[in-house]
Design a protein around this nucleic acid. Structure first.
Lengths: 367, 367
DNA sequence: CTGAAAGCGCTTACAG
DNA sequence: CTGAAAGCGCTTACAG
């Protein structure tokens, strides 16, 4: 009567997992559970036997059963720049975060968001402190500010809390991040440079306009690296002249200084045929060109934010490089989940593709 | 003693689902299960009550528990062109299929692959027949051959078996496919045309070389549409001259005729500056150019197969358009899974991004 | 150091 | 038409 299930399968498919092991080892399932979870209170001999059997059986726990019964809850903290009309880039990260949030909720994993003003170092620090004061099982952040990030990193390292970097990478010695999700910024700029070189004729030159949002411009790791990659290709390898200037604006106020500077450069250097903006403020350049009815220049920049998309549609921006912010938010959290809950091995880096977007493939990219 | 769990949560989180409903309706959980699954044998009155309560509770079944206990197995059939050194494009689909396969296996879903020779209509038909003879809960296929696909479609429609198209879309009246996963071929060609237009100077022209693999060339829906999209942009909108020829080769044998034809075109039309190949056989053109030491031409084509990647690296191919074949294989099957097992709503189309790949972003794309 | 029992939320026979 | 019971593979107290 109790023998309904034939045990003639010599397969991988080991009957009923933990129960089978218990039977073969002549112990109870409680004991098996203990050794499988490395909990104390099992005789060395028993432990060894159980490990041996579970090894031979190639035992893999049934995650479904595990999640059904487990009462353990997980909470992740996500540090994320405030998405505002001035910095809409982050809305897409937010959507990715929310998708992950919805997906893991039923599985007992909760995600808390900590928003900060990306132009304010202090605001970042405050949220870092809140996170350190709380009890989180995993943390995800864009390491915008070196000092403050290192505080958090040290805290995580000492408490063995896994953390994930996204959008911007930090290659510091203390960095033991579980993974980095985002582009290789140098390569990204290099690719932009390659594309631009295709457009140019001998004698043409290029203008790079770095429009920063931080009060502390030396902190924009990504923009700096993109510019370096771009410069390497356009100037060093393709041999075109590259002009460049920086413009610093924490988001508010008029852009008259930018306009003046830009027009001045274009007047002095009529050989400029392409303008490159290594960040999402590309639309500001397009707006100035439009306002002053300047045509015949190609504009290449970053990120599919609404303002940029408008100018891409109008033909005032030629190419945008997309970093898949949605995927960054989503995959970053899922890698914490996969690591902590599913016990999966996580790659040290998940580099986002450097996607070239033109008016014509916009809709496909966004769907 | 049995009251350990406080029931003071007036939340969405409805205690224990089916049990709570049973309690509130004063019936057993068996009866609740029946109406939730729309099985017969429940009094209309009881049914209505249970439906009402479950509605008020906003009841969502716990999929984890469901899967743990359910003995129902699902089997999907995938029709996939044989991946061979001549058609390596399909290796990547295969990997996506295998990933999906591994992921759903533990959940009681099995995936069977049916491989066919993409140059042989007959081979496709044979596999279609096998699938129709079997008992499958879901089917995925690239609808390469119209007649044969329609047979399968009619079979599926009458048996209410969901089916998914991938790689190639078919917009026939009988087509009630659950979804289509792949590019919009016309737009894809149009984008290629736009990119090419950026490279050209007035007076330049373009050559389109369509290298087919089917014995029955009129069946290449994708290639035809790409060519049309390309032509529309390059010729109609940008106003460049477009030469084109077709070359038909079912995979085997020498390419001397192709070489002769290509060299002839280039000799007659020295104004040709770009060659466009609307399919993965782009490397064949690159090989001929290399062999004959022809430089200064730009080559744009499709798909990240090894041969193409080699020439991209060498600089003999300038741009490749990627269709994310891995994702096609993976997402197509997952949409069957999500539909059938998770009861999710599926979008009618999942258009793959039209990704431009150059030597410089190759590694990021592939990782 | 070890075992026996209850239970996660559901489905599946089986018995009325 | 309806209910009571067993069980999916695991974890969690609790009792020795």
């Amino acid at each position: 009567m109790s023998g309904k299930k034939n045990k003639n399968s010599s397969e991988d498919n080991s009957g009923s997992g933990i129960k089978l092991i218990a039977k073969l080892a002549s112990v109870s399932i409680g004991t098996v559970d203990r050794v499988l979870h490395n909990r104390p209170g099992v005789a060395e001999k028993t432990k060894a036997l159980i490990l041996k059997i579970s090894g031979e059986l190639n035992y893999k726990p049934n995650i479904i059963a595990r999640r059904l019964v487990s009462k353990k809850k997980y909470v992740f903290a996500v540090l994320i720049p405030a998405a505002t009309p001035d910095h809409p880039y982050w809305y897409q990260h937010l959507e990715g975060v929310d998708k992950a949030k919805a997906e893991v909720k039923e599985l007992g994993v909760y995600i808390e968001k900590f928003s900060f003003d990306q132009s304010e170092r202090k605001s970042f620090l405050n949220q870092v402190k809140k996170i350190m004061a709380g009890k989180y099982d995993g943390i995800m952040l864009p390491p915008f500010f070196l000092e403050e990030t290192n505080q958090l990193v040290r805290h995580c390292n000492s408490k063995k809390i896994p953390y994930v970097f996204y959008d911007t990478n930090l290659k510091e010695k203390e960095n033991k991040a579980l993974t980095y999700i985002g582009q290789d910024a140098f390569k990204s700029g290099y690719l932009a440079g390659k594309l631009v070189s295709y457009f140019l004729q001998p004698g043409d030159s290029v203008l790079c306009v770095s429009i920063n949002a931080l009060k502390n411009p030396d902190q924009h790791f990504n923009y700096i690296q993109r510019e370096e990659g771009f410069k390497k290709q356009v100037e060093d390898e393709a041999g075109f002249k590259l002009y460049s200037f920086e413009y610093n604006n924490p988001g508010k106020g008029d852009e008259k200084p930018l306009e003046n500077k830009l027009l001045q450069e274009l007047t002095y250097h009529p050989d400029i045929k392409v303008i490159f903006v290594p960040n999402p403020r590309t639309y500001k350049v397009a707006a100035i060109l439009e306002k002053n009815r300047i045509k015949g220049l190609k504009v290449v920049g970053y990120d599919l934010i609404d303002q940029n998309i408008d100018y891409l549609r109008k033909g005032m921006i030629d190419f945008l490089i997309s970093q898949e912010p949605f995927q960054q938010g989503y995959l970053g959290l899922m890698s914490l989940f996969n690591h902590l809950i599913l016990n999966q091995k996580i790659e040290k880096e998940k580099l986002m593709p450097i996607t070239l977007v033109m008016k014509e493939n916009l809709d496909c990219i966004m769907s």
